Simulated scan of single mutants.
Amino acid sequence: MDIVKVPFGKFNGQAVTKYVLTNDNGVQAGILDFAGLLQSFKVPTKDGGKADMVLTSENLDEFTGNGFCTNRLIGRVAGRIGDGEFKIDGKEYHVEQNEGKNTLHGGKNGFYNHVWHVDGTKLTDNAVSLTLSLTLTPEMDTFPGKMHVVATYTLDNNDNLSLKFSATTDADTLFNPTNHTYWNLSNAAAKTIDNLKLYVNSKNHLAVDDGKIPTGEKVANAGTPFDFSTPTKLSDALKPMAATKENGFDDIWEVEPSLDKPVASLEDPESGRKMTLYSDRNGLVMYTMNSDDPTVYNHGKVQPHMGIAMEAQTLSDTPHHPEFGNVDLHPGEEKAYTIKWHVEY
């Protein structure tokens, strides 16, 4: 086990550092204190090299200069809040609307737009971890309450990378964080996710309106492109989505929460690489990077479907749909959530 620090540029004048966690098998996770960003997740290859499982760059500007929230931590609330308003115990709150009339990913100054404090690192015989923290106030992100959030990444010798979030607040607020990493397990020559196979432990996805806000209706996956109950080649699923205005997926699946049974998996039959996702929450938002706009993502040549974001969270817009779950956070309590990725190679 090992952990090293590497300078990684500056964000708004603040120095950014990458922490490279390495296990005894040679698996490496590179994590930035900027946005808790999973900059790389490398696994050994059969020829003795290393392959990155995620979209990556060695240039910080390529992460900060696009609108894809690439590989960053997201909060206070992942996904969209309809009309930027919600109620907690009958009291109404209004927060910044940064996507039309809706609030997306906690507003423009959420988790993903800060250099986090490094609380510390830990090294044992079987695991290495990095703990980051951030305090947000209403003046910073318009959400109520002074929230203190802690995020700990842990890489172990069983080739698991886990991410545990916890948060406290001094006033009623919302807490539904996620990680927005884009995955592509293919060999470097493959520029899209087309040949990857996706499995999702899900029977339903959420119907959404034109603003991608859930209507409350759950739609059966069976017989639709949303059905990944058996590993499905992504090109086969994406073909019928080409006729949609998104040209792919930007959608919400209801999943069976579990840290022991896979919520989803992504595999590359050619290389043998596989990522299995576990989550203790009931939602999985997946976005197949549908844009070819170079101003949105400036990492080399841009084309649709370069990666797939698999955002584990509580189902979106829960303040307006209590049946989806409860993401309220009250003073005097702590909420914690875990996401885990297991890699095979």
Rank of each mutant, 00 (worst) to 15 (best):
D52Q: 09
N98D: 13
G67I: 03
N102C: 02
K91G: 01
L60T: 11
L55F: 06
S57K: 11
Q97I: 01
Y93H: 11
F68A: 15
A78P: 03
E58G: 11
C69T: 06
M53R: 08
M53L: 15
T56R: 13
T64F: 06
E96L: 11
E96P: 02
D83F: 01
K91C: 02
C69A: 08
G75D: 07
T70F: 07
H94S: 10
D89R: 12
D52G: 04
K87I: 02
E85Q: 13
F86Y: 15
L60C: 11
E99S: 13
L55R: 12
G84V: 03
Y93R: 09
A51L: 14
L73R: 01
G67M: 06
T64K: 10
F86N: 00
Y93S: 12
V77E: 14
G84L: 01
F86I: 13
Y93L: 13
G100I: 11
N102V: 00
V95G: 00
I81T: 14
D52E: 10
D83H: 13
I88D: 04
R80Q: 12
G90K: 05
K91D: 10
K101Q: 13
L73T: 04
N71Q: 07
V77W: 00
T70R: 06
F68T: 14
V77G: 01
V77M: 02
L60E: 09
N59W: 07
R80G: 05
E96W: 00
G67S: 05
Q97S: 11
L55H: 09
K101H: 15
M53Y: 11
E62G: 08
G90S: 06
K101D: 13
L73C: 14
N59M: 08
D83T: 09
K91T: 15
K101P: 01
G82T: 04
V54P: 00
D83S: 07
Y93T: 05
N98S: 10
R72E: 12
V77H: 04
L55I: 15
